[in-house]
Design a binder for these strands. Structure first.
Length: 396
DNA sequence: TCTGGGGTCCTAGGACCC
DNA sequence: TCTGGGGTCCTAGGACCC
């Protein structure tokens, strides 16, 4: 029998924003983290006090402020959040050999086989000790859910919020699930909910009345099997350390829509520079470059190209990205609100000699130059070599 | 009400190969 | 001359999560 916990930080971004700015955000009960008052942003995280007004994550800031006009808005303290997240993870590793970071503020812990180690105390007791240790070390409150698999642990954690523990004992899965809506199942989002409701399916109980064959009449085979397993609490994925990331993207929504190709290219250059530097800092190479363009009317298009060989340099990535952007603009040239770049097909960067075995668009000089720029930035700061330099480099 | 930034995974169609 | 099934890779788009 597995013993899985999901530890989830309560209002994580709000807690970190208060910690880094005790006199500002720290003193504002009505706090919204996500951007300035007149930005085009959305709410990343709202304090529990502002949630009383109906403010929710992903809501446009403008709407949140209409609901709660006295709220204080602060930008997301990304760096501090990353540091705090790593700090919490270190504490959690004292309790479980494997800690899987599911996002910046949640972690799965596999405590299977630790019963003796914990003197056969109840899982809820262990969870409370974990919460106390994290609060002591990081001043962050966690909610923890537990059960025999990751699905149950995750759904239990949602019930535990805020500042609590909910453990579903082995054998108790069915009665727990019967009390839940389908919307509470992770990955059952608004679209799927809508389709399910068409067939009168709202609660998990509603689905339990049917077998897989019946469900298949209403959805694809794959979906039916997936849903049947979920409502029966069946989920066997393991708690595991994360593999290499699948992709890396950088994007930006402009303060005002951009009309000119030239302005979009300038933004693209900045994003590619950031993405490529982060790629190399992670010791990775990319084979697929994608550009995303969101127009003024929110219509979003993307274009991508997979290269014959992995690359790491600004010059090659930028060259591909520019062509992709040009193709997207050629298809539809209207004011744009966002441009983004995404690198995927990531793999550990090979040594220069291994690169040299194959003909590729990227030369030794490209990689040497990229590395030199990284070293200068590492020594003198990220602003010491700005994209303008690269633009000249790009067209010798 | 006017929609962020960072991700993951899935689908469907086409190209190509055996 | 017309034709199969399966596998892999690629592209564009979309759902979903925090």
């Amino acid at each position: 029998m597995r013993r899985i916990l999901l530890a989830d930080a309560d209002a994580f971004f709000v807690a970190v924003a208060r910690a880094v700015d005790p006199d500002g955000a720290g003193r504002a009960p009505l706090l919204i983290v996500g951007g300035s008052r007149d930005s085009r942003g959305v709410v990343c995280c709202a304090s529990y006090e502002t949630r009383q007004f109906g403010v929710r994550s992903a809501m446009p800031i403008s709407r949140a402020l209409r609901l709660c006009p006295d709220a204080v808005c602060v930008p997301v303290p990304f760096k501090a959040c990353g540091r705090k997240s790593a700090e919490i993870r270190t504490v959690l590793l004292q309790f479980a050999p494997i800690v899987e970071g599911a996002s910046i503020d949640e972690w799965y812990l596999d405590l299977t086989g630790t019963e003796g180690l914990y003197h056969h105390e109840a899982l809820a007791t262990t969870a409370q000790r974990i919460r106390a240790a994290v609060l002591e070390a990081s001043r962050i409150t966690l909610s923890i859910g537990g059960g025999t698999n990751k699905l149950i642990a995750k759904m239990a954690a949602a019930r535990a919020k805020p500042d609590g523990v909910v453990i579903v004992d082995p054998g108790g899965e069915e009665s727990f699930l019967r009390s839940c809506t389908l919307a509470e199942i992770p990955l059952v989002g608004p679209k799927f909910q809508e389709r399910l409701a068409t067939h009168g399916l709202v609660m998990i109980e509603d689905v339990l009345r049917y077998d897989v064959a019946t469900l298949q009449r209403w959805m694809s085979k794959r979906e039916a099997a997936w849903l049947w397993n979920r409502v029966h609490g069946i989920e066997d994925s393991v708690v595991a350390h994360r593999e290499v990331a699948r992709g890396l993207s950088r994007e930006e929504t402009f303060g005002k829509d951009l009309h000119e190709d030239r302005d979009l290219e300038r933004e693209l250059l900045r994003l590619v520079t950031r993405a490529a530097a982060d790629l190399r800092a992670a010791g990775l190479s990319t084979r697929t470059v994608a550009v995303r363009l969101r127009d003024w009317d929110f219509r979003t298009h993307s274009a991508r190209r997979t290269l014959a060989e992995p690359v790491v340099s600004d010059r090659v990535i930028l060259g591909v990205a520019r062509e992709l952007l040009a193709a997207l603009r050629k298809a539809r040239r209207v004011p744009a609100r966002l441009v983004g770049v995404r690198l995927s097909g990531l793999a550990p960067a090979q040594s220069a000699t291994q690169f040299g075995l194959f003909p590729t668009a990227e030369t030794e000089r490209d990689r040497g130059l990229a590395g030199a720029i990284d070293r200068v930035r590492g020594k003198y700061g990220p602003k010491s070599i700005v994209p303008g330099t690269l633009q000249r480099m790009d067209s010798p």
